[in-house]
Computed example of a mutant assay.
Amino acid sequence: MSEDVSPTFPPLLHGVEVPAHVDAFAKAVTQAMVDAEPGRITFARDSGTMRAAICFVPDRVLRQALPGALFAVLLGLNDALGALAPPEVAVHFAWPNRVKVNGAYCGGLRAAAQYNDPDSEPDWLVIGVEVPVMPLDTRDPGHAPDETTLWEEGCVDLGAPQLIESWSRHMLVWINRFVSDGIAPLHEGWRHKCDTLGEEVSAPEAGTFMGIDEDGGMILRQDGETRVVPLTTMLEGTG
Rank of each mutant, 00 (worst) to 15 (best):
D23W: 06
D4Y: 15
R177M: 10
Q31R: 13
D35E: 13
T49D: 05
E199H: 12
N102F: 00
C55D: 12
A80S: 06
L62P: 03
G128R: 00
S47D: 13
F25G: 08
G48A: 08
L136A: 15
M134C: 09
F209T: 05
G198S: 08
E152L: 05
D123K: 10
T226R: 12
P135G: 09
A184H: 15
R227I: 14
K27V: 15
R51L: 00
V228C: 05
D79T: 07
G207P: 09
L163M: 03
F93A: 03
P161K: 13
V61K: 11
E236K: 15
G76D: 09
G211S: 05
A83L: 12
L136V: 10
A24S: 07
A160S: 07
A26Q: 13
A144D: 12
F25S: 04
L186Q: 00
G198F: 01
W190A: 07
M1G: 07
T226S: 07
D79M: 08
V173F: 13
I175M: 12
D137Y: 00
L12R: 03
H192K: 11
V201K: 02
E165W: 12
N176W: 11
E225F: 14
P132N: 06
H187D: 07
V18E: 01
E214H: 06
R63T: 05
P118R: 10
P11V: 04
W124L: 02
V126D: 02
A65T: 01
E214S: 10
V131I: 03
V61D: 10
M234Q: 04
D137S: 06
G217V: 12
V73A: 03
D140Q: 09
T148P: 11
L13S: 04
R110E: 03
E153V: 04
G108W: 00
N102V: 07
A104H: 10
A65W: 02
E147N: 12
T148N: 11
N102W: 03
A160D: 01
R227T: 15
H14E: 09
P11A: 04
V18W: 01
N97D: 15
T49N: 08
A184K: 13
N97A: 07
A112D: 11
G76L: 06
V173Q: 13
I54W: 08
C55W: 11
S166M: 13
I41E: 02
G198D: 02
G216Y: 09
G39E: 03
S2E: 10
V126F: 03
P96C: 09
I183R: 07
G239D: 07
L186C: 00
C155E: 01
I212P: 07
W151G: 05
V16P: 08
